[in-house]
């Protein structure tokens, strides 16, 4: 890896997540990840990209153990978050999911008000103090650049927001919980270019304080946003490098072909 774009801060930053030899198979026999080893830096945007079915979403869903909901047959290897193996059966998955938030491809606002959407996670965790909840609402909405648009109608139904606002609300809902890692699974796939720009701008701000892992909805978005980029193809990690390096000088032919649009 060439280091010319790496600032001293980035060199100092620790690996937030260390993935070692992770393999994953579903009960229907389909294999989704094969022997993945990957280090994810704190305070950076790591992009996982590649054609559909490459295992990007499966990997994301391992990182907050959302895969527990689907029928996973075999998961082997380790995922260390701050040094702890989260695939260990003894892991407190509830605490893990508070620490590792997730934004989905389709904005799913819960059927309640804007405010309640933001306080939902905290209330589940037993937070009852009004001041804390208020604080979380404001923090989440400001960080996701939605505050100015909705501050006067926090008690309106969240479903009344536009698609782009809904997706930023989903991001705000995660941020209200003060997670450490945020997983973003094609968060802009249903949005217009202006809304997409707003989300991307918010992500650039957020990486100062959070570890972001993004599955982008296009190669262009991958190139625009990646501090680090990992190219996945059919369950394999083909290439992993600093974003600028990978998109300008890919080392593997398959990566180059995909970036230049020869398949995908």
């Amino acid at each position: 890896m060439t280091l010319e774009h790496v600032t001293p801060e980035k060199l100092m930053a620790e690996n937030k997540i260390v993935i070692q030899n992770l393999s994953l198979q579903y009960t229907d026999g389909t294999e989704s990840l094969r022997d993945i080893t990957l280090n994810i830096r704190a305070n950076a945007i790591t992009v996982l990209f590649g054609p559909a079915g490459g295992g990007k979403s499966s990997l994301l869903r391992c990182l907050n153990r959302l895969n527990d909901l689907t029928e996973v047959k075999v998961a082997s290897g380790k995922i260390l978050l701050d040094g702890e193996n989260i695939l260990d059966p003894k892991t407190d998955v509830i605490a893990l999911r508070r620490k590792v938030g997730m934004v989905f491809a389709r904005p799913v606002v819960l059927p309640m008000s804007i405010r309640q959407n933001l306080t939902y996670g905290l209330e589940l965790a037993g937070e009852k103090r009004k001041s804390r909840l208020e604080e979380a609402v404001e923090r989440g909405l400001k960080l996701s650049a939605l505050w100015d648009e909705v501050k006067n109608r926090l008690d309106d139904a969240a479903i009344a927001l536009s698609g782009g606002q809904q997706q930023r609300l989903c991001l705000a809902r995660v941020l209200a919980q003060q997670p450490e890692v945020i997983l973003l699974d094609e968060p802009t796939s249903g949005l217009d270019p202006i809304s997409t720009g707003k989300v991307e701008a918010a992500l650039q701000e957020l990486k100062k304080d959070y570890t972001l892992i993004l599955v982008p909805h296009s190669v262009q978005q991958a190139a625009r946003t990646a501090d680090f980029a990992a190219f996945f193809l059919q369950g394999e990690l083909v290439e992993y490098n600093e974003g600028k390096e990978l998109f300008t000088h890919p080392k593997v032919k398959r990566t180059e072909d995909y970036i230049e649009g020869r398949f995908g």
Binding site: G121, C170, V174
Partner: peptide, 8 residues
């Protein structure tokens, strides 16, 4: 899914 992902 969303509720579970928020720690529910």
């Amino acid at each position: 899914t969303v509720s579970i992902s928020l720690g529910g």
